Amino acid sequence: MSGKVPMTLAGEQRLREELTQLKTVERPQIIAAIAEAREHGDLKENAEYHAAREQQGFCEGRIKEIESKLAGAQVIDVTQIAHTGKVIFGTTVDIINLDTDDEVTYQIVGDDEADLKHKKISINSPIARALIGKEEGDVVVVQTPNGGVEYEIAEVRHL
């Protein structure tokens, strides 16, 4: 993979917390469970042992995945960037659908942080791509399967 992947400060903190939890709590619990299962004798037919080994595989895989994401991340703290009114990575944007007058708020985040339920959209999503570089008051057209939808940028915030 060439280049760094953008990540918000909050996204990095969540990954670091999960990594600490995996390494300091879950990993030792799994090791203890494997040791206890070994004490029960024949490992071939020991379901507890096999379940603990499978859990260990998932845990170690997730640890490697998180470490890789953190190593490849370019952490951007949007609160430290001068507020220009332009939409950039990490900003929170209020947009108004000009057809329906519905207003929605999104934060533009990295792919791994995107979560529509929490109004976080990937920088690679069609809406974010249309918004990046634009300013408050601009009208953008987002291409959807049903055609173009016009949105006005009501406010850009650095939260």
Rank of each mutant, 00 (worst) to 15 (best):
M1V: 12
M1G: 14
S2A: 14
S2G: 11
K4F: 12
V5F: 01
P6C: 10
P6I: 07
T8M: 03
G11T: 05
G11Q: 03
G11A: 04
G11M: 02
E12A: 12
Q13Y: 10
R14A: 12
L15Q: 10
E17Y: 10
E17C: 02
E18I: 04
L19G: 04
T20C: 07
K23F: 02
T24F: 08
V25W: 09
E26G: 04
I31T: 15
A33R: 15
A33M: 09
A33Q: 15
E36L: 13
A37S: 13
E39R: 15
K44S: 11
E45Y: 12
N46E: 07
H50F: 12
A51I: 13
Q56H: 13
Q56R: 14
C59D: 09
E60C: 06
G61V: 06
I63S: 06
I63D: 08
K64I: 10
I66D: 05
S68H: 15
L70P: 03
L70K: 05
Q74K: 14
Q74Y: 07
D77E: 08
V78D: 01
Q80R: 12
G85E: 09
K86Y: 02
G90L: 03
T91Q: 00
D94R: 10
I96C: 10
L98Q: 12
D99A: 15
E103W: 00
Y106L: 02
Y106M: 01
I108L: 14
I108G: 03
G110T: 07
G110P: 00
D115F: 10
D115G: 01
H118L: 08
H118P: 01
K120V: 04
I121T: 11
S122I: 10
I123E: 10
N124I: 06
N124R: 15
P126R: 09
I127R: 05
A128I: 05
A130N: 02
I132E: 04
I132P: 04
G133V: 05
E135Y: 15
E135I: 00
G137F: 03
V139N: 10
V142C: 05
Q143D: 10
N146Y: 13
G148Q: 08
G148I: 06
V149M: 13
V149G: 02
E150D: 11
E150I: 04
E152A: 11
E152Q: 14
